[in-house]
Design a binder for these strands. Structure first.
Lengths: 197, 197
DNA sequence: AGAATTGATATATAAATCGACATCAACATC
DNA sequence: GATGTTGATGTCGATTTATATATCAATTCT
């Protein structure tokens, strides 16, 4: 209902979906109830500054008061870093969510496993890049391997996963800069969604 | 009482004092009661986003959500533009406030005077620069001339003021970049005030 | 010195957020 | 097809903001 809060709220939701986090996950990270997050995102209630900060911090965002004159420059910078966290195609995004869940389960199953850090960083890294659709299988196999390791209580199997993950990481990072790979791969998902509004 | 709202609130007050606006003036501009502004600035209550936006807009500020990674770059930009609106020495700041009041009275006295726009823009421009203490008299004489014009109901006298104002404007803008003008002139006022938190 | 302005507070009322539930339809997963 | 998850809503109660006024000490202006 309120005024120009829309743009900020929109940015919150967009950032959350890029991670991608569910409202309940964000709730856990930020301490703000899921119901409240939903109300904030959809209907835009007039939230308090502390709530805004809590959510923003959970999303690795900071709140800045910038002079009107500086807004264009600021936007150009934030676009760069924001777009770096690219929106994945829906199927990829879903698989990445599943993978994240599996990684989490792995960390719970083998809490003191040193490779956990590798898993986390590889995931964070890969997430930053547009993942081609033909790597869907790669993601899936990584996840399956993880789940199997959990099921077998054999933390050793995780090591193989790390290697697969690393090679995926390198392949994606060094991929051609997304001009024309003629297959149906949509190298990055449409960035502007519904930018009007 | 809340957490990291302090920094934002601090920035609001600092910006207001740089203009310089009184809490009551800012109240008129933003629509937020003076009592509320005082509470926000001093005691830091947990204000709503719409209130924050109202005040920020009145101060020519925008609220931006920036990725953590981009914060240093952002800060460097905002510093540039923020410091451009320099803090004046206290006596100068006071005189500028009086001058602004006089300009406002002039605009009320002669509403359809075309020079009003010149007055406004010259003021806004000069305000952006560090004003040397020895120009105190210049500011004062400009103000006195304005008040006399108002008293005499002679809008013609305003023209002279415009010229004085313009020359001040040029002199200040082309002044040496504030390294050592050996007189007691503090070219810019200490920028960091109490930057520690 | 007397008048006006500044920022800080006090009080009382209306309205809103916030949190902790619970529930629901749509969709995903197995 | 059964189960689980996601986002959107509903309600209730406690807390808080926000607004409107009024006041006050400290400066500042005339």
């Amino acid at each position: 209902m309120p005024y120009a809060t829309d743009e900020i709220v929109k940015q919150l939701r967009e950032t959350r979906e890029r991670k991608p986090l569910s409202q309940r996950e964000l709730s856990q990270l930020s301490g703000v109830p899921q119901a409240q997050i939903s109300r904030i995102e959809s209907n835009s209630i007039d939230l308090r500054l502390s709530t805004l900060i809590a959510i923003a911090h959970a999303l690795d965002l900071e709140i800045a008061l910038v002079p009107r004159k500086a807004v264009p420059a600021i936007k150009s910078i934030t676009r760069q870093t924001m777009d770096a966290a690219s929106i994945q195609a829906p199927e990829i995004a879903r698989e990445m969510r599943r993978l994240r869940a599996s990684i989490h389960r792995t960390q719970v199953a083998f809490p003191s496993l040193p490779q956990n850090e590798d898993l986390r960083s590889s995931f964070m890294f890969v997430q930053q890049w547009p993942i081609p659709a033909n790597d869907f299988g790669t993601l899936r196999s990584i996840r399956v391997a993880l789940e199997r390791a959990i099921g077998n209580h054999s933390s050793d199997d995780v090591a193989d996963v790390i290697n697969d993950f690393r090679s995926l990481r390198n392949r994606i990072a060094h991929a051609p800069p997304a001009s024309d790979r003629d297959d149906q791969t949509r190298p990055a998902y449409s960035l502007d969604e519904d930018d009007d509004g």
